[in-house]
Amino acid sequence: MRSSNRPYMASVDQLRAYAVLLVIFFHGTQIFGTWIAHDRPFQFGEDWLYSTNPAATVIFEGHTGVTLFMVLSGFIFAVGTIGKDVSYPRFMANRLLRIYPLFMVIVLIALAANPGAFGFLPFLQTVLGLGNLPGALVLGDISSGALWAVAVEMQFYLLFPLLNKLLTRFGLPTFLRLFAAIAVIRALVWFVTTVPNPDSILYYNLVGRIDQFLIGMIAAWLYLRYADHFRGWWKIGASAGIVVAALWAFNQVHGFFNHGWWRLVWVDVEGGMWALVVLTYVATVRATNVVARTVTKIGELSFSLYLLHLVIAGVLVNNRWWIEIPGIGAMASALVTVAALFLPVSIAVAMVTYHGIESPFLRLRVKYLIEPKVPIELQQLDRDLERATRSS
């Protein structure tokens, strides 16, 4: 829930914007770059992009924006609820109001266009938040590029009130032990599996992503107690530098397709470095200039942008609408296409869907924090004071 006494929310929205921009540039360079270079669709393994340029690798590994989203989810919920009781029904009602209106509109329209994809059990599985598992609806770019992440988020929502209670009641040590236990069990399963699949175990599944949500909650705990320690523009620069260096190294070893055991550690490294960015950025940034407000608005549109950007890319590709500039190469032309065409069109569409579908339902959300009960004696004292004030 957003309120005026939470000034960090603008900074959080800006981080959401950076996350969705990473994803859009990541998919855009893949899709448009392949069409410009080879005049065919992107092939997942064959056409992956690599570079020794650190700035380029941030875009080429822009799937890391999903990790930033998940760290932010843990941070946002925990920073407002640590030390407080959460009404589970109201919390889940708010989550449904946040996710389901646009989610269901997209799913139903996609099914209307592809009726052969419908099946009662796959439909039920998808709408109940298990769309990232085998047996869910297969809806082309919609399901492969976006719905899996929505499913992982929804699974985390089911667990969050309990996780928050553990962190509130027993403190950080107990929470860290839980974190370690999950990591140990996951590692055991990894090493007992003949051919472990990092995508299935770590990328598309809550059993891998849960670490990043937990890291976000730990970051919230640190922020509430030590925000001043993370404040400083140079600290933002240092944390961003860590992200760039780590993504460069990941790209050099072809990390997305590398099945080495170190992928078990990368889940936490990636989550931890983004948590450091979140901590330093939220503790430091309070900008209200035009650029900051624009980035904040993009962050507000991030859910629509995330769910719809691959559909928009498909429309552009089907009509062969991209920008090819002779002499600069396919990847440079792809970047121009993303910045000058793909991104502006995506933002324009997202503004329509946000204000037409998301915003009205967001206004229906209710407070989900349980107010502490006031003893009857204090309630009577409050009433007596109120009457005395009126009579005076």
Rank of each mutant, 00 (worst) to 15 (best):
Asn197Ser: 12
Thr193Tyr: 08
Pro122Phe: 00
Ile210Lys: 01
Ala113Cys: 09
Leu72Arg: 01
Thr64Lys: 03
Gly33Tyr: 02
Val127Met: 06
Ile76Ser: 14
Trp248Ala: 10
Arg225Thr: 10
Trp266Ala: 15
Val291Tyr: 10
Met273Tyr: 12
Trp266Val: 15
Trp48Tyr: 14
Leu308Gly: 03
Tyr306Asp: 09
Thr81His: 11
Tyr306Leu: 06
Leu224His: 02
Ser346Ile: 02
Ile376Lys: 12
Ala146His: 10
Arg40His: 06
Tyr88Thr: 07
Gly237Thr: 11
Phe256Thr: 08
Tyr8Ala: 10
Trp221Asp: 14
Ala340Cys: 09
Ile218Glu: 02
Thr280Ser: 14
Ala339Val: 06
Ile36Tyr: 00
Gly33Pro: 01
His229Ala: 14
Met1Asn: 12
Gly116Ile: 02
Leu222Ala: 13
Trp148Lys: 07
Gln43Ile: 15
Thr34Met: 07
Val138Glu: 15
Ala180Val: 15
Pro54Val: 06
Asn251Cys: 12
Tyr281Glu: 07
His229Arg: 15
Val20His: 03
Ala238Arg: 06
Tyr157Trp: 03
Val285Arg: 11
Asp85Leu: 12
Ala249Ser: 11
Val282Arg: 03
Ala183Met: 05
Phe160His: 10
Leu301Lys: 09
Leu133Trp: 12
Glu377Thr: 15
Phe230Pro: 11
Lys84Asp: 08
Ala275Tyr: 08
Lys165Met: 11
Asp211His: 13
Leu385Cys: 10
Leu49Phe: 00
Val265Leu: 12
Pro115Ala: 06
Ala149Arg: 01
Arg209Cys: 09
Ala240Pro: 04
Leu364Tyr: 01
Asn197Trp: 04
Gln30Ile: 01
Pro134Ser: 00
Leu133Cys: 03
Glu358Trp: 12
Phe160Cys: 08
Gln379Ala: 14
Pro115Arg: 06
Trp190Ile: 12
Tyr223Met: 09
Met70Lys: 03
Ala246Trp: 14
Asn251His: 02
Pro198Leu: 08
Ala240Cys: 14
Val269Thr: 07
Thr126Ser: 09
Trp322Leu: 14
Ala181Trp: 12
Gln30Val: 01
Gly28Tyr: 00
Arg2His: 13
Thr389Ser: 06
Gly241Trp: 05
Val138Pro: 01
Phe156Ser: 00
His254Leu: 09
Val207Ile: 08
Gly145Val: 04
Ile201Cys: 00
Thr284Glu: 08
Leu316Glu: 01
Gly33His: 06
Val71Pro: 00
Arg231Pro: 11
Ile99Leu: 13
Leu15Ser: 11
Arg6Gln: 15
Glu386Phe: 09
Asn5Trp: 05
Gly356Leu: 15
Val253Gly: 01
Asp85Gln: 15
Trp221Ser: 13
Asp13Ser: 11
Asp47Ser: 02
Arg365Ala: 05
Gly28Pro: 02
Ile242Cys: 13
Tyr50His: 13
His254Ser: 15
Glu371Ala: 13
Ser51Leu: 05
Pro122Glu: 07
Asn197Val: 13
Ser144Ile: 13
Ala313His: 07
Arg2Phe: 10
Trp234Lys: 11
Arg320Phe: 12
Phe77Thr: 08
Val349Pro: 09
Val349Gln: 03
Leu97Thr: 07
Thr194Arg: 11
Arg209His: 08
Ala240His: 09
Phe303Ile: 11
Ser302Lys: 07
Arg365Asp: 05
Ala330Val: 01
